[in-house]
Design a protein around this nucleic acid. Sequence first.
DNA 1: GAGACTCACATTGCATGCATTTCCGCGATG
DNA 2: CATCGCGGAAATGCATGCAATGTGAGTCTC
Lengths: 254, 254
Amino acid sequence: MKAMVAEEEGRGMQVARAQQGLRELILAGELPPGKRVSEPAMVERLGVSRTPVRLALERLAQEGLVAPGASGGFIVRAFTAADLADAIEVRGTLEGLAARLAAERRPTAGALGPLRDCVAALDRVVAQPVLSEADFDEYVRLNAFFHEELVRLAGSGVVARAVEQAAAQPFAGPSAFVQLHATEAAGRDTLVVAQEQHRRLLEAISRGEGARAEALAAEHARVAQRRLRAALSDRDKLTGLPGGSLLRLAAAWP
Amino acid sequence: MKAMVAEEEGRGMQVARAQQGLRELILAGELPPGKRVSEPAMVERLGVSRTPVRLALERLAQEGLVAPGASGGFIVRAFTAADLADAIEVRGTLEGLAARLAAERRPTAGALGPLRDCVAALDRVVAQPVLSEADFDEYVRLNAFFHEELVRLAGSGVVARAVEQAAAQPFAGPSAFVQLHATEAAGRDTLVVAQEQHRRLLEAISRGEGARAEALAAEHARVAQRRLRAALSDRDKLTGLPGGSLLRLAAAWP
DNA sequence: GAGACTCACATTGCATGCATTTCCGCGATG
DNA sequence: CATCGCGGAAATGCATGCAATGTGAGTCTC
């Protein structure tokens, strides 16, 4: 039985497919937290053999979605509110480091070009008096680019790796929970505040103000903290959100 | 052919042995940087089959010692001075976060006990007018414990994972290069300075001075930065040190 | 003599086989 | 009625087989 569906080629394609498939299954809540991920079941569900499944599980363990079980295999992790808050704090701290390094390197106007353009584009999105859902999508896209560019400006592969790993933690990414604002009345205001921070961050970096850039980036991540708390205060908002079932507001599983 | 030597049992023993063996081979310089790690060769050298070898390589890739090659397999990574400095800076930043969190939690006197004892033990080691090599070993042991305990006091598994990953980067650990001081005249002074920082860090945490603790932890990691620079200024010191052959002071491999 | 092509070989990535261990349900027993 | 022990079945971890692909040497050509 060899790849009956979608014989796309690629070097590590089976592993990638298993990883993506597992991620979706877990975030969709089909694999309940605390339960072991059965490899044979995944083989049947994902159409790849056990070897890629195992490798994908290993990578997801690094990503934090699963954890090695005490007696073999992997179990789906659950996340407490504190876990999410800490993950965001870690990302903010590392982005602060990246921002400081970027500022201290005194980037040239040319090097800052992409970030300037990104901020300008974000300005245009946020400036609108009313934001459609598509606008929020566009914001998410540009916001992601801003954070990538910020890390790139730090000029360090090591720092980039660290930030990427931190942002890959579930719900810790720079755009986590942004979608929730799309249905909120005051959703636009949050984006206005965040965008102001983007502008000031760009300013601090372009002026070589390292400490200010670091503090701004850390504070910027705390917008995500507030989004998280708002989401947690309203369980309805979590239901249906990818990964919502992984949250354990009060600890202790069966 | 099943494990002719040392049939120690264990759940992931083959993978662990492969990982440890590969680490040693790489740090010993037997696998030159930039070269692909041949799986069959490792099978022969390590006495385990290809599956554990592959898994170990995947984990070492996360650890940073190897990187996935462009066309399959893994290649031994080389490190520039900037890489090492950045890795140390990342660790210092995250330890700063851990120290701040620890301080902000206002740990009880009881919770601070192990850290106090550790600092006291370090005091006794450093207070001696002359330090033997065994004293340096003891310092390394206690220093590692101090850093573990610091992270534990932050009370966050997420932060702990982040710090551990940062400290696992080659040469980024809290005790990297300490051994070099054992043969230096002024070696003891560096330990005196570092130990003063340990004391002040403990003080800041016990008083709940979060920002001070954060700054102290970050600055404390910069002791490692200076050790690194001292080591790099003297190639002789690197030769023979585990992993010394991985350093590429000027970039570009064959 | 230098460079590009070709072809055989070694290696990788995936699939699968096998022994050991663990889990789960069932029955026995206090 | 609850708890303990036990047996079968499934799952894991490791080893290995197989096809596809990259590598490298040797050779041919300009």
